[in-house]
Structures are given as structure tokens and as C-alpha cells.
Deep mutational scan, measured.
Amino acid sequence: ENVVSAPMPGKVLRVLVRVGDRVRVGQGLLVLEAMKMENEIPSPRDGVVKRILVKEGEIDDTGQPLIELG
């Protein structure tokens, strides 16, 4: 899985990584606010952040691509 998608609709509060960062499975990639709760979205695998497809403050839909890993 190279693309991390939104598991729920919500607002992107914080992006915790930058392009080029090495990430490990379970590491937080970004924080979504949904139903007044903050949810940290973890990396599904080890890899390198290739692209960040959303910006802080954006509203996303379920299934929307958020981050691409390489």
C-alpha cells in the first residue's frame, strides 16, 4: 500500500511528517479531527514520504488519499 487514505471524513489539523522523511510502521503521519476528536493516522508500513497530498486545515472525505509512501 503506497497511498495512505483517510479512514473517516474530517479536518486535517497537523501534518507530522515532511517529504523525504523515513517513517516506520505505526508512526503518526498526520492528525485528523473528526467528531470533535483528534485521531492520529499511522503509517501502514516502513517507507519514505514521497508526497503529501493534503494541507493543514483542509477537509477530507473517507478514502481520500492523504500521503504517498515510497
Rank of each mutant, 00 (worst) to 15 (best):
V12A: 01
Q64K: 11
I41H: 01
G57W: 06
R51V: 09
Q64C: 10
R22I: 14
M8K: 07
A6L: 08
M35N: 15
E40V: 15
L29A: 01
N2K: 09
T62H: 09
L66D: 01
P65Q: 07
D60R: 15
G70D: 14
G26F: 05
G28N: 09
K55I: 12
L29I: 08
N39D: 05
V48Y: 13
G63V: 05
E1A: 13
G28R: 07
L30Y: 04
R14L: 07
G63A: 08
P9C: 10
G20N: 06
I59C: 11
T62R: 12
V12C: 07
D60L: 15
R14Q: 08
L69P: 02
D21V: 08
S43Q: 00
K55S: 12
V31I: 13
I59M: 12
M37Q: 13
G26C: 09
P42G: 10
N2R: 09
E68T: 09
L13S: 06
S5W: 13
K36S: 14
N39V: 15
G70Q: 14
P9W: 09
G26H: 05
A34S: 14
N2A: 11
A6W: 08
G63N: 10
E40M: 14
E1T: 14
R18K: 14
G47T: 03
V17D: 03
G57V: 05
I67N: 01
V3M: 13
D21Q: 13
R24M: 11
I67D: 02
L69V: 08
S43A: 11
K36H: 14
Q27V: 06
E58Y: 13
R51L: 07
G28Y: 07
I41A: 01
R18I: 10
P44V: 04
K11Y: 09
K50M: 11
I52L: 05
G26T: 03
D60M: 15
M37I: 13
E58N: 10
N2I: 15
R22A: 11
R14C: 10
V12M: 03
G70V: 14
K11T: 09
D21C: 08
V49G: 01
L16F: 03
R24Q: 11
A6I: 05
G26D: 04
V4F: 03
D46W: 07
V4H: 02
L30D: 01
E56L: 12
D60S: 15
N39Y: 15
P65V: 10
M8D: 00
D60T: 15
M35K: 11
P42I: 13
R18L: 07
A34P: 01
V3G: 05
G20I: 04
E1C: 15
G70E: 15
V54P: 02
V31T: 05
V4P: 03
I52M: 02
V54C: 14
K36F: 13
G28P: 15
V17T: 01
I41L: 08
E56A: 11
K50Q: 10
V31Q: 01
D21W: 04
E1F: 12
Q27I: 06
A6K: 03
V12I: 13
V49M: 00
N39I: 15
R51T: 09
K11L: 09
R22V: 13
E68S: 06
V23H: 00
V19T: 07
V49L: 00
G10F: 06
E33D: 07
N39S: 12
L30C: 05
I41F: 04
L69I: 12
L16I: 06
V12K: 01
P44C: 06
R24W: 10
K36C: 15
M35W: 10
V17S: 00
E1N: 13
L30H: 00
V25Y: 11
I67M: 11
R14K: 12
L32H: 06
L29G: 00
M8A: 09
L29M: 06
P9M: 10
R22K: 12
L66M: 11
A34L: 11
D60C: 15
I41N: 03
P44E: 04
V25F: 11
V31F: 03
P7Q: 07
E56Q: 10
I41V: 10
G63P: 04
G20P: 00
R51K: 12
G47S: 05
L69Q: 01
V4N: 02
V15F: 09
E56S: 09
V15W: 08
Q64N: 08
P65S: 07
Q27S: 05
